[in-house]
């Protein structure tokens, strides 16, 4: 269903933004972006890059290898960049997005980022389209600002479907599509990550139809339309 609303999936060579709904949803937002990046990484075995600031560890803790592996993320194909400030994060992420050996870049930024304006996001979108990399920008404790992203999402943690013994179940996310270039928005659904089949499924139904699980390559017609619209903006 999610794939259908997106004309077949997320653009694998585009810029996507993920906003955390509240401070408690930071982990959910990052992990959702990482999982999308992981799906993208799985397609061709290129590397997944995760860029974050040094201070991020102070509030949210350190990324933990066994936890990533438990989510089904291939840590051998994941490189973590820990950089001194937001400027360095943006610069390194742009370099990574311009490298053809990178499948996806997860950019983790906290707070309002005046540097990440329309020009900067446009630069990311162009780099992503040129080198076929996916840029997943996670914005924590920030409110949406104008950008050249192909889609914008709001992520929150959702109650999981408990296992038999009242134990927390698979990770679930409440996903709201805030904006999509050339498509409808305002849809929201609950998605659940299935680590065994490495795909998302809709959480509120028992159906296991994979959603968002096959990020789609550039769409020829829509892509051209996007370009025009962005340059007009």
């Amino acid at each position: 269903m999610a794939d259908r609303e997106l004309n077949g999936g997320l653009r694998a060579d585009g810029l996507h933004e993920f906003y955390a709904r509240s401070r408690q949803d930071i982990v959910a937002t990052i992990s959702f972006a990482l999982l999308i990046g992981q799906l993208c990484q799985r397609r061709d075995g290129r590397t997944l890059i995760w860029a974050r600031e040094v201070q991020a560890a102070r509030n949210g803790g350190n990324p933990y290898g066994p936890g990533l592996a438990a989510l089904g993320i291939d840590t051998r194909k994941l490189v973590l960049l820990i950089l001194p400030d937001a400027k360095a994060v943006l610069r390194a992420a742009l370099d990574a997005a311009r490298d053809a050996a990178v499948a996806a870049v997860v950019v983790e930024l906290t707070g309002r980022q005046p540097q990440l304006d329309l020009t900067a996001t446009r630069r990311f979108a162009l780099a992503a389209a040129e080198k076929d990399t996916m840029v997943l920008s996670t914005r924590l404790a920030a409110s949406p600002t104008p950008s050249a992203a192909h889609s914008r999402w709001q992520i929150a943690a959702a109650p999981s479907r408990a296992l038999d013994v009242h134990a927390p179940g698979a990770p679930a996310f409440e996903v709201e599509l805030l904006r999509q270039r050339g498509g409808r928005d305002g849809i929201s659904f609950i998605m659940e990550w299935d680590g065994d089949s490495a795909s998302f499924r809709l959480g509120n139904s028992a159906a296991t139809a994979p959603s968002l699980s096959r990020p789609r390559s550039a769409m020829a017609v829509g892509g051209a339309g996007d370009m025009r619209r962005a340059s007009a903006a």
Binding site: Y64, A69, A70, A170, P171, G195
Partner: peptide, 17 residues
């Protein structure tokens, strides 16, 4: 890494303090 059992949710956290 230690393998997660099939059908189990992740037993180790994504972030560690």
């Amino acid at each position: 890494w230690l393998d997660n059992e099939p059908g189990e949710p992740p037993l180790r956290p994504l972030f560690l303090f």
